[in-house]
């Protein structure tokens, strides 16, 4: 529920910023805005696979297939580039979080892709949008802004992962979920995080999650860490898996019991022995 309120808030920011005073006059009736539009139904769409053959146009005007961003975990942000509000907020949030991600390295362990779901976006709007993102320079080799080449692909791929959006003519903006989508190296949707709930630690763990258990031997610590956490669908965050620690703790109980009983038995035997010796001496 908290997720929804925050999201609605974000959308409202999106609505308020560009239209300014207009917003005072227009209040969308509650029933008009189906809140389910603003989130991705994760139970339905987790595991959905993107089509790697879809051609994209990067901000430099190059045409590349979607698959060129896969092969390692991918963070996908769907936005539209003429949006001044939530879209750049979300991308900014991601930059801030990635700055704090420590366990994995961008470029080496994962990539980031911002994709426009507005087929009117072009190189100009892409460039303009990118210039507004402060701090993205650090990620210039691993973070790409791109648009779909064909509108049909755009519709098919967003539908595939349950990303719904629609144009509101009154507000002259898109209503859409603001989410970070985590994909596995083969392009399956693994996790959806919302900037309102998640923090850098969750991004970190979602990136480990996106590996789908495929870790290199030297990453054993990362694997162990990913085992210690599990995703909480209610809170949209990763939480510690307490049973693992309880289980490990319990392992110690038996061993401690054994050594203490060995000790008790020996001490008792020594006492008896001492008693016998004393008795013998006194006699």
């Amino acid at each position: 529920m908290r997720a929804l309120t925050v999201l609605l808030g974000l959308v409202l920011i999106c609505a308020l910023l560009p239209v300014g005073a207009q917003a005072q006059y227009y209040k969308p009736p509650e029933s008009d805005l189906d809140p389910s539009i603003m989130v991705i139904d994760e139970k339905k769409f987790l595991g959905a696979k993107l089509d790697g053959n879809v051609p994209l146009i990067t901000k430099d005007g190059k045409e590349v297939p979607l698959s060129s961003f896969l092969g390692q975990p991918l963070i996908l942000v769907l936005a539209y580039y003429t949006c001044d509000g939530s879209c750049s907020v979300i991308n900014h949030e991601l930059i801030k979080m990635l700055d704090d991600v420590k366990r994995v390295q961008h470029g080496k362990d994962y990539r980031i892709l911002t994709l426009s779901f507005d087929n009117h976006d072009n190189l100009k709007t892409t460039g303009a949008f990118r210039r507004k993102l402060e701090g993205i320079e650090k990620y210039k080799d691993s973070w790409t802004l791109a648009t779909f080449k064909n509108e049909a692909d755009l519709k098919a791929q967003t539908a595939k992962i349950g990303f719904k959006f629609f144009w509101s003519p009154q507000d002259r903006l898109f209503l859409h979920p603001g989410a970070f989508l985590f994909f596995s190296p083969e392009g399956r949707l693994i996790r959806i995080l919302y900037p309102s709930q998640a923090d850098a630690g969750d991004v970190d763990l979602a990136l480990l999650d996106a590996r789908q258990g495929q870790f290199r031997p030297q990453e054993i610590i990362n694997f162990a860490i990913s085992l210690c956490y599990s995703y909480n669908y209610q809170d949209g965050k990763y939480t510690l898996s307490i049973p693992i620690f309880v289980g490990f703790g319990a392992l110690g109980i038996g061993i401690t019991t054994l050594f203490s009983s060995l000790y008790i038995y020996r001490r008792r035997q020594q006492k008896i022995l001492k008693g016998e010796i004393d008795e013998a001496q006194s006699a």
Partner: peptide, 13 residues
């Protein structure tokens, strides 16, 4: 001795 406590902990949870 080593493993029973783990089961006991698991079912307690």
């Amino acid at each position: 001795l080593i493993f029973v406590p783990v089961l006991a902990a698991a079912v307690t949870l």
